[in-house]
Structure formats: structure tokens, C-alpha cells
Design a protein around this nucleic acid. Structure first.
Lengths: 266, 266
DNA sequence: GTATTCATTCCGAAAAATGATAATTATGCA
DNA sequence: TGCATAATTATCATTTTTCGGAATGAATAC
């Protein structure tokens, strides 16, 4: 039985690092152990490992730990690397600012929608797709777009295979209905969601296509229905499509300086 | 005898992360495997582990990997923690006292400048960057420094992707202009801001570099224009640079109790 | 259309992590 | 100084993970 463990050595290592990095002052082994519910000897061993590698280090003259030099160096590299490939995020941020609502990019993997990136414009309100979260296919705009682009045969098979969980009153749980909606979605080229996953939250999404028109991901917006009605969502489509076009140009480029991308009309 | 293994799972995980973070572009599993002399299935497994935890992620639409959201978040936390240690905070306080104005340290994350530490000398006046606050790239000194260090191609594309919001009369909203300013910034090695974000507040910043000249963060000063004119900012540069050099030295520094052996490879 | 490289899955042997218990060493306090 | 308490290290049987060769599938180049 392949057990998916969420508490392996690696997780613990990163949990410890995260905890140390999140504290204002240096922390003792005991504090870390109690914060992360680790047995004390285990905490010692793990922290010792991290210390040997320079990922943590003792604060001068004490036995309390702070982030290590290797970790800081690595982090700087990571920040730099992330910044070099940040155009996707910039486009997302720009469209979120233009629309004035939360926008997110999602992909489908293993028959669930995984949100890769998202931008909140204002303070948290209503729904938030945190990157890394997973949502079902049948009640999200991204999921609908994905399904709508499958060959009809595969689409129907998938619809029947999925557990069409009823999250709200408007969740589509009937295969016939879902197929009809997907058909519309396919013809129209974009999808809407009417409080089907979370009550009070509506949204819409458009596909991000590769040059050969393969679906790469979806760009969507989620908004409290109190602010924008289901019908009003349509006015987001044009900006979303414009941004999606930009993204598809941006995303696939090999990001090297002298790379072979001829498109400068970004 | 407790065997000190220099090639355990943890070492490999960090080696992979380091390699991905050090590349300019997304890398394939095979590239990572060959770069780190790992068997391909092993590399695949390890990378899969990291991907599940959000430390690495696939570049959209490809099978190549880039740093993941979790890792970027953690790295930003680490940088923040690194500069909040007593010794480094003291350096910041010293330079703030010397200059007589508010100094702050900022990093870029998600295309936004996040201030990780700051020191006010006098009573609140004009702008205050509270740690945790976020400011745009195009109208802050720190943002300019980050952008100026991108390869030219990427820099221009990022400029075009950013929403160059006009905050004041002097905010640079024109891509050509911004590019010109960034070019100067790159050549000069530091940045100035002329009431571009908040009216009545000017500022400048210098980079804090790691030993291998990687950008870790920026050290900057913000001051009401009533007290110091835009032109007069230049006299802050030298003290700032001195402090920045001091800060990057402390990053390299190894504490006395960590002096075990000479092998300090990653 | 074939060759080749790359990505992915399988699985049994080998290695490492785990954490209870116990011993040892700091550390605070009067 | 001495004593009590907490912090740290040691030991070890058990459990869990890792490891990477071999095989297979997918993608791409030639």
C-alpha cells in the first residue's frame, strides 16, 4: 500500500526551518520541539542535522537557533530565480488590478484543479484559492474548460467517473446537465460558475493555450456575488482573454536571454 | 561512531533546490540528474517529493522545473529573519543614526517590495515602511535595483508586463523611460526615487550582495523632501554602501562554535 | 518510419529515521 | 557552594524510507 506521508524527514526539516524563520528571536530546541510536537531527542537530532549543513546556526553565545548562512544564501538564490521568472505573476497581477478582483491561474492534474498562482487585490474576502490547493472539476470554471476540451467520448466517460459532489444548491450533479453545460462551454470558449463550489462566490475563466492550441492552464477570477452578479461576470471575459493571450506568449518562452523567441510584441 | 553522511536525502534535496534556483531557466529532470550525478529514477523520485511539497513546480505547460511557491515564501521568510537578528539590526540602527533618517531593508517577492526591517530615527514623519508592507516595483528604489539586475531582455518584458500605476506626478509610467532609468541604475549600482510613490517622500537604496555577488536584499532610506532634496540624497549613498557591505559580511560569517571542519560545500 | 532520448513506474535489498528509556551534562537559584 | 531542574546526548530495537537497476511508456529527433 503506497502511503502518502505528510510527515517524513523532509517535511520535518522544512517545518523546523519554517518555524525558526518565522520567529522574531532565536528559539531553543525545546521551543521548536513543543511547537512542532516533536519528541525532544528527535528534535535534537533533526536540528543537529540542519546545523551541520549550515541551514540553522546557534545565535552567538547561546544555544538558541537562528537561520544559517547556507540557508540565507540559498534563499537569496531562490528569490532571484523566482524574480527572473516572474513575468507570469506580473501579468496576473496586472489583470487582477484591472478587473479589481482576485485572479488565479489553475491547471488540471489528476482530475482536480490545482491553483498555481493567485493574486488578491484587496483584503481577504470570500473565497481564496491558495496556490497548491485543489478543487473539483465539475464545479469550477477551470475544471469545466478542461473537460469541455476533451474529445466527446472521453468527456462523457469522465463525467460519469467523477463523483459529482453537491457542494451547494446550484452544484451540477446531473451528468446530462453537466454535459450540456460543457457543450456550451466548448462552443463559447470560456466558463462561468454560479456559486457551485462555494456559496456566495461566482467566477469565470478562460483558457491559456499553447501555440498549437493545447490547453496549458486557465486564467480565472473569483468574486463574492454580493459585489458582482453572475450575469455581470461577462464583462471580465475580454480582459481575461487579453491577459491569457499575453500569458501564452510569455509562459512558453525559454527564459534565457538569447533564447529563440521571436515575439517582441508583448 | 555517528556517521556523518554528506549525501543523505536532505543533502540531495537541498542540492536539487540549489541547482534549480541557480539556473536561469527551467530545468528538466534529466538535466538535474546529470548535473548532480544522480541516477535518473532517483532524481525523479526526489524531485517528485519536492514538487508535492510545493518546493519545486513545473513551469506551466512544460515538464521543466522552477522554484515552487512554498519555497519562495519560505525564502522570503528566511531573508526577513536573517536581517532581524540582533547584530544585523544593530547595523541598520547604526546607519539610520548616522544618516539621521529612516532606513529600511527590503526584498522583492511576487513582484512587490516587501520591507523586512526598518528603523525610524525620529518621530513618524512622512513615509513609514512597516515590516510586512508591500510596495510596487517601478516606483521604489529597491524595486528598481531588483529590476536593473535582470538580463536586459527579461527586464524589458517585465516592465511591459507590470501595471505601471501612476501614484504621483513623477511616477514613471512609460516603459521607455523606466528602461532608461533602470539602465542608469544598473551602471551606477544604486537607485533613487523622486516622490514617485508617495508625494513629498524621496529616497535611495543600495544592494546588499552575497559573497558571490548575488542580490540578497536592498538597504534604503526614505525621507521627506522638505528635509532633504532629491539631489542631496547622494550623500547618503556612501554610508549606505558601507552598511550594506557590513551586512553582507555578516551573512558570510560563521560563528565560532560552528568551526568544525573545512568542508563547507552546500 | 525508425532511433534515441527522456519520463515514469516497479520493487526487493539496504540504509536511515524514529522515539522510548536512560545516562550525562548544563544551568538557575538560594 | 550545593542542590534541583532542565537541557542535552547515548543507546537500540523497530519501523519506515530510500535507493537505483531494470523495464516500460511517451516524446522527440533524425
Amino acid at each position: 500500500m503506497p502511503k502518502i506521508n505528510a510527515d517524513g524527514p523532509l517535511d520535518r526539516a522544512f517545518a523546523i526551518i519554517g518555524h525558526v524563520a518565522g520567529q522574531v528571536r532565536a528559539v531553543s530546541v525545546a521551543e521548536i520541539a513543543s511547537a512542532l510536537a516533536l519528541p525532544l531527542p528527535t528534535a535534537h537530532r533533526l536540528i543537529g542535522n540542519l546545523e551541520q549543513r549550515g541551514l540553522l546556526q546557534k545565535a552567538l553565545g547561546t544555544k538558541r537557533y537562528v537561520v544559517g548562512n547556507q540557508l540565507v544564501t540559498l534563499s537569496a538564490k531562490v528569490i532571484g530565480a523566482a524574480f527572473r521568472t516572474a513575468r507570469r505573476h506580473a501579468v496576473l497581477r496586472a489583470v487582477a488590478a484591472e478587473i479589481g478582483e482576485q485572479c488565479e491561474i489553475g491547471v488540471v492534474r489528476d482530475n482536480v484543479v490545482a491553483y498555481v498562482d493567485s493574486v488578491r487585490v484587496s483584503q481577504p474576502q470570500g473565497l481564496q484559492f491558495n496556490p497548491g490547493e485543489a478543487a473539483p472539476l465539475h464545479c469550477t470554471s477551470t475544471g469545466k474548460i478542461y473537460m469541455s476540451r476533451l474529445p466527446e467520448r472521453a468527456r462523457e466517460k469522465l463525467c460519469r467517473a467523477l463523483a459529482l459532489t453537491k457542494y451547494t444548491e446550484t452544484t451540477i450533479v446531473d451528468v446530462e446537465n453537466l454535459m450540456k453545460v460543457l457543450d456550451e462551454t466548448r462552443k463559447r470558449g470560456w466558463a462561468k460558475t454560479n456559486e457551485e463550489y462555494v456559496r456566495g462566490v461566482v467566477g469565470c475563466a478562460v483558457p491559456i493555450l499553447s501555440p498549437d492550441r493545447e490547453l496549458i492552464a486557465c486564467l480565472g477570477v473569483s468574486v463574492p456575488v454580493a459585489r458582482v452578479s453572475f450575469a455581470e461576470l461577462d464583462r471580465f471575459i475580454a480582459p481575461l482573454q487579453k491577459a491569457a493571450a499575453l500569458l501564452s506568449e510569455t509562459i512558453l518562452q525559454v527564459d534565457e536571454d538569447g533564447a529563440d523567441d521571436g515575439s517582441d510584441n508583448l
